[in-house]
């Protein structure tokens, strides 16, 4: 069993305040792990640190992604290597067309991996097919990235990007928050479609309900910047019933 992501003793601070206080986590290839925790436990910080966001200072520890030193890479290098972050709050990019953005991103990654770039026609064919599966109207390609999108549309757009970019490791940062049941299923279907021996996912969530649709191999409980418990999918149910306070104690 080879390893997709290995986190060892990771500590990270934001504006001088330590948020992650020593995280150890191993995600083997082909597995989906859920990270659950109360608000402020460091879930989003972990996602940002893995994606390489500025302002998140790693003070100790190491992270390897398929054997490479992830923390030494620029955000775009991580993306090209196959790390995809589905944002909790996807940013709006007025003036940047969605289609242009998607194609630029896809080709930048392909270029970085030494693969041939897709021309406009090839890309559109790909994009249209994926959009159909996600139930997204085609006009969303013409609009500015996430501009004027509803909460659900933004999340769907994240899943579309994930489908098009076919990452090796998907990190879903509370992608389920604010979604109705239909949208939730679309997100879950998007992840499940990618599942396979060369794909792993970190599903970060506050609630158990997304995990009904994306059944994780492992569940980790993050409290106060540390993983305090790990277990099988049944741990999520236990959390739902007993709350974080009980489990933490």
């Amino acid at each position: 069993m080879s390893i997709m992501l290995q986190i060892e003793g990771l500590r990270a601070a934001v504006e001088g305040r330590e948020i992650l206080r020593g995280i150890d986590l191993t995600v083997p290839k082909g597995e989906v792990h859920a990270i659950m925790g109360p608000n402020g436990s460091g879930k989003s910080t972990l996602a940002y640190v893995l994606a390489g966001r500025e302002g998140y200072e790693v003070t100790a520890g190491r992270v390897t992604f398929e054997g490479q030193d992830l923390l030494a890479m620029e955000p775009e290098q991580r993306a090209a290597a196959g790390v995809f972050l589905a944002f909790q709050y996807p940013v709006e990019l007025p003036g940047v067309g969605n289609a242009n953005f998607l194609r630029t991103a896809l080709n930048a990654q392909r270029r970085a991996r030494g693969e041939p770039e897709l021309d406009a026609m090839q890309f559109l064919k790909e994009a249209r097919a994926r959009m159909k599966l996600l139930g997204m109207p085609e006009e969303m390609l013409k609009r500015g990235v996430n501009v004027g999108f509803s909460g659900g549309e933004k999340k769907r757009n994240e899943v579309l990007q994930m489908a098009l970019l076919s990452p090796r490791l998907a990190i879903l940062d509370e992608t389920d928050s604010g979604l109705d049941i239909d949208a939730l299923k679309i997100v879950a279907d998007g992840v499940n479609a990618l599942r396979g021996p060369e794909f792993s996912a970190l599903v970060i969530t506050h609630y158990q309900r997304l995990l009904n649709h994306i059944v994780p191999d492992r569940v980790h409980v993050l409290v106060g910047g540390r993983i305090i418990r790990s277990g099988g999918p049944e741990l999520a149910l236990e959390l739902e019933q007993r709350g974080y306070g009980q489990v933490a104690a």
Binding site: E74, E76, A108, L165
Partner: peptide
Amino acid sequence: FYLRARGIPQEQARAM
């Protein structure tokens, strides 16, 4: 950051 997280290099992201 959003653009870079999608794999677009810094300079190209700035240009976009």
